[in-house]
Structure formats: structure tokens, C-alpha cells
């Protein structure tokens, strides 16, 4: 069995008095592709965003390759790590967003190069070569010098994925990356993710695409009301849900 990549223990998160994550435990091994499913408000996106500290969390531990993410612990007290240290840890994971979030004043290539130059301290030329390589991998080598506003939604999302992957993250986080896309553009993005999975990239995906979760995931996590309600092999889970809640959720979500 491959070694442990990500370890989440007792993760708790609240907004004011509303508890969104009520103690999430999860272990992920290298090369795993895990889909997180669940109805909206179940905490799946929040959990993903805690892993790269886009959300602070109030309790529990997240460890990436054994390294404590986000907080220093000493005895019973904990302190948020410095911005600089958190920035370094964020670069260990890559993230693709529902709204793509490409930098609109930069070309596709410049979007990919920014992190390489500023974070990885590569030269402009090295970064350009790498950006072209990854844009080629997502099928957009001809669009390197195009601005986001001139690309379709599907193309923008593929650039966003290239921007994240080019940083050579240990783990990729996908946050409902096809939800904002027109139906006919969903396929091209899923195709790119499938190819990355085939390359052995470790991935955690929050998704509403049940068919896709079923096909690419090595494991599925079903979240409900801030906890992991059920997890396992997608084929078994989808065929024979063990909990009433998952059975209900699968019934109401379109499986196509």
C-alpha cells in the first residue's frame, strides 16, 4: 500500500455559532482519487478549503505528508502559522475553483507562469517552457497568448487546472469545477481530470457529477451535516448504500 499523503483528524470549523464541520476524520494515500459528495451545506467545500487554509478552522489537525497544516500546537494552545509559512504550505496543494478565477489581465501562459516565477522563483524562460508544456497537456497550446475573456468557460477551467498542476502540487483539490459550465463544456474538463488521475496524481474532488465520481474515484466520501456519513468503494456504495441518508441522496441526485 502506498504511503499516507493526507491525514485529517477531528476537523472542526464554525462560522459564528453555526458549526459547519463537526469532527471530520479522513486518511488519504498517495495516488488516491477521492470524490466528496453530499448535498449543499454538508460541509464538503469547506473541508476542501480548510486543507489549503482558504478557511481557518477551530479544531482538529490536518497533516500533509506528516506536516501540520496551518497551525502550531504547543500543549493545549494553538496558533496560526505565519502568512509566509502558510503560503509555502499552500503551494504544496493545487486548487481549481468553480468560477475558474483566472487573472483577467494576464494571458493563459502568464496565468500559469505567475506562480512559477513568484513562488518557485523560476526564470521567465523556464516558466514559459513549463507553461507551454502544461497548456499543451490540457489541449490549449494554441491559446497560450489568449486572454481569459476570449476563452470559453471550459477552456478557462482547463487553463486554471494547468495553472495549479504546473506548480507540481502533492495533492490537487477540485471544488465543483464543472458546476459553472454549460453542459456541452463539462466533458472536456472531466477528460483533463481523468488524464491526471491516470498519471497517478492524488486528487480530492468535490463534485455533483455522480457518473464521473463513479468512474474515476478510487473512493467516495459522502458528507452530511458536517460529518463523513459513509465512505467506500464507489461501486459498492452506489449499488448498496449502507445509510438511509446516502440512499436518499443518490435517489435525488441525477446519475448521468
Amino acid at each position: 500500500m502506498s504511503k499516507v499523503l493526507l491525514e485529517i483528524q477531528g476537523l472542526r470549523k464554525q462560522y459564528g455559532i453555526v458549526e459547519v464541520l463537526k469532527g471530520v476524520d479522513c486518511t488519504m494515500r498517495e495516488g488516491e482519487v477521492i470524490s466528496i459528495i453530499g448535498s449543499s451545506g454538508s460541509g464538503k467545500t469547506t473541508m476542501l478549503r480548510c486543507i489549503n487554509m482558504l478557511e481557518d478552522f477551530q479544531g482538529g489537525h490536518i497533516r500533509l505528508e506528516g506536516e501540520e497544516i496551518g497551525y502550531e500546537h504547543s500543549g493545549s494552545s494553538r496558533r496560526r502559522k505565519s502568512e509566509k509559512e502558510i503560503a509555502r504550505q499552500r503551494a504544496l496543494t493545487g486548487m481549481a475553483f468553480q468560477q475558474f478565477n483566472l487573472f483577467p489581465h494576464m494571458t493563459a501562459a502568464q496565468n500559469v507562469m505567475l506562480g512559477l516565477v513568484k513562488v518557485k522563483k523560476m526564470s521567465h524562460d523556464e516558466a514559459r517552457v513549463l507553461a507551454e508544456k502544461w497548456l499543451d497537456r490540457v489541449g490549449l497550446s494554441a491559446r497560450a497568448d489568449t486572454y481569459p475573456g476570449q476563452l470559453s468557460g471550459g477552456q478557462q477551467q482547463r487553463v486554471a487546472i494547468a495553472r495549479a498542476i504546473a506548480m507540481a502540487p502533492r495533492l490537487m483539490l477540485f471544488d465543483e469545477v464543472t458546476s459553472a459550465l454549460d453542459p456541452e463544456l463539462v466533458g472536456e474538463v472531466l477528460q483533463v481530470i481523468k488524464a491526471l488521475a491516470a498519471d497517478g496524481m492524488s486528487m480530492l474532488l468535490v463534485t455533483h457529477e455522480m457518473r464521473f465520481a463513479y468512474e474515476v474515484s478510487s473512493r467516495v466520501i459522502f458528507m452530511n451535516q458536517g460529518v463523513i456519513c459513509e465512505e467506500g468503494d464507489p461501486k459498492e456504495m452506489f449499488a448498496k448504500p449502507r445509510t438511509e441518508r446516502l440512499a436518499e441522496f443518490l435517489k435525488t441526485s441525477s446519475f448521468n
Partner: peptide
């Protein structure tokens, strides 16, 4: 300016100043 752009910057490891 949409907040998502800041988040995208953070996600690739840029510091708030960058």
C-alpha cells in the same frame, strides 16, 4: 475585484503582498 482572484493567488502559494 472578485474575491476569487485573491483566493486563486493564495492557492498557488503567493503571499498577500505578492
Amino acid at each position: 475585484i472578485p474575491k476569487g482572484l485573491t483566493e486563486a493567488g493564495l492557492a498557488i502559494g503567493l503571499t498577500p503582498m505578492q
